[in-house]
Design a protein around this nucleic acid. Structure first.
Lengths: 188, 188
DNA sequence: CGCCGAGTTGAACTGAATCAAGAAACGTGG
DNA sequence: CCACGTTTCTTGATTCAGTTCAACTCGGCG
């Protein structure tokens, strides 16, 4: 049923079966269509969003141009972390790249869980630790790698190339679609 | 005595006085001279480092060139977060920019604290949340602001300009010292 | 079949890097 | 407290990676 989500949570803290059932039972499930917007700029991201199946992308818009910063595939989470933590209105959108099934838990409910089960603190601590490692990797890549190197690294993740249109991948690695096209040409 | 550190910890979880004394008592204190290296590339960063007084910088080296990624003033922490979390050897150096007094807590001791006081989980969760907000802000600035805008933002933090040599500030905002010099020229 | 969005390609442009040389600031020892 | 050497900062000339704008091609879908 919520096996993927259970596995996801169990990776962060030593929950037993009944705890996992209790926690996953508090998530609500929802199906979203391709291109549907799950979070809009200006809203507060006050839900933990977990992708059961499909793929979401997180992006922001500057001067009419969309900058994609993250993709979430089945088995992973998709949140505007900044808004979620700070409680401030989001500057991001979350959109389904394909028909997807998502599970979400309101932050208010998470706050309750903090009080009832101390392992939730540990889970979220480790969840954030994971997020930090990813953020630092991306930050460093942006600072010290060339666009071509960043694209070569992307090639190691075939699921990205299969599912995600090139125009989204471009801003994800920090270039324009035009440049990404040229990078691909050079590599062949 | 360890008042700064107490305040720092208390900002993250509702510790009472005796808990704070207990925790801060487990930190060791050390004085370091200007230019002294506290963490070297290749070492694992297995200590929480808190700056009591002075200023440290975190940087890495690519092709003989130093890239500074963070400064820590008195009252804040200075860790290679990536190595600390992952347990992998660090790719960074931590160096004192001026004579400083630091306090540090080995990770093994932090792991013990996790077991003895559940509030420590909460503290570290919120500590990471803080770190994430900072990381995202810097990531976004690097992606969407021009070098000049990033410098203008730096101007809002006078302590940076006072204490930190320009050559360190340059890579911190993602440009070469040469470019920073030109940016400053244009602004006047 | 025709259209429309995605991707490619070319030409011109631009922000920042690089390389090199000179000026200013700093600190260390006499 | 000054003099000298070293480091930091500035400035100029050139190069380069990546952007911008525009035109064209391709492929899928109504």
């Amino acid at each position: 049923m919520a096996a993927l989500l259970s596995d996801f949570l169990a990776a962060y803290a030593p929950f037993d079966k009944s705890e996992l059932d209790d926690i996953t039972g508090q998530f609500e499930s929802r199906k979203v269509k391709k291109n549907e917007i799950i979070l809009t700029e200006g809203e507060v991201c006050n839900q933990l969003i977990f992708v059961n199946d499909g793929c979401l992308r997180l992006y922001y818009v500057v001067d009419e141009v969309e900058i994609t910063v993250w993709f979430a595939f089945g088995g992973s989470s998709s949140i505007d972390i900044y808004s979620f933590i700070s409680g401030l209105p989001s500057t991001y959108f979350i959109q389904a790249i394909e028909d997807s099934e998502i599970m979400f838990l309101p932050k208010s409910q998470l706050d309750n869980l903090y009080l009832t089960n101390p392992k939730i603190q540990e889970m979220m601590r480790k969840f954030w630790e994971d997020a930090i490692l990813t953020l630092i990797e991306r930050f460093t890549a942006l600072q010290k790698d060339t666009a071509e190197q960043r694209y070569l690294n992307l090639l190691k993740k075939p699921e990205y190339l299969q599912k995600i249109p090139q125009k989204y991948l471009a801003s994800f690695i920090g270039v324009t679609p035009t440049s990404l096209s040229r990078i691909r040409k050079n590599i062949r």
